[in-house]
Simulated assay, not measured.
Amino acid sequence: MKKSFYSTNELRGLGLKAFGDNVCISRNVSIYNAEAISIGNHVRVDDFCVLSGGKGITIGSYIQISPFSIIYGSSGVVLEDYSGLSPHCTIFSESDDFSGNSMIHPFFPAEFKPGYIKGQVTLRKYVQVGVGSAVLPGIELGEGVAIGAHSLVTKACDPWGIYAGIPAKRIKERSRKLIELERGFRSQLKAEE
Rank of each mutant, 00 (worst) to 15 (best):
residue 2 K to I: 08
residue 6 Y to G: 05
residue 7 S to H: 10
residue 8 T to H: 09
residue 11 L to T: 09
residue 19 F to R: 06
residue 23 V to Y: 02
residue 31 I to A: 00
residue 31 I to M: 00
residue 32 Y to T: 02
residue 33 N to A: 05
residue 33 N to G: 01
residue 34 A to K: 05
residue 35 E to T: 01
residue 35 E to M: 06
residue 38 S to G: 02
residue 39 I to M: 01
residue 41 N to T: 02
residue 42 H to R: 11
residue 44 R to G: 03
residue 44 R to V: 11
residue 45 V to P: 04
residue 46 D to R: 07
residue 52 S to I: 12
residue 52 S to N: 15
residue 61 S to P: 00
residue 65 I to E: 06
residue 67 P to L: 08
residue 69 S to R: 04
residue 71 I to W: 02
residue 72 Y to S: 04
residue 72 Y to G: 00
residue 72 Y to I: 08
residue 73 G to L: 03
residue 77 V to Y: 03
residue 80 E to C: 07
residue 88 H to P: 10
residue 91 I to T: 12
residue 100 G to H: 11
residue 101 N to E: 15
residue 104 I to Y: 00
residue 105 H to D: 06
residue 106 P to H: 11
residue 107 F to K: 08
residue 112 F to P: 03
residue 117 I to Y: 07
residue 117 I to T: 12
residue 118 K to E: 01
residue 119 G to I: 03
residue 123 L to N: 00
residue 123 L to G: 07
residue 130 G to V: 08
residue 134 A to P: 08
residue 144 G to F: 01
residue 146 A to Q: 15
residue 148 G to D: 14
residue 149 A to H: 11
residue 150 H to D: 12
residue 159 P to Q: 09
residue 162 I to M: 15
residue 164 A to F: 14
residue 165 G to P: 09
residue 165 G to F: 10
residue 167 P to K: 13
residue 169 K to W: 12
residue 171 I to H: 10
residue 180 E to M: 10
residue 181 L to F: 13
residue 184 G to L: 11
residue 191 A to Y: 13
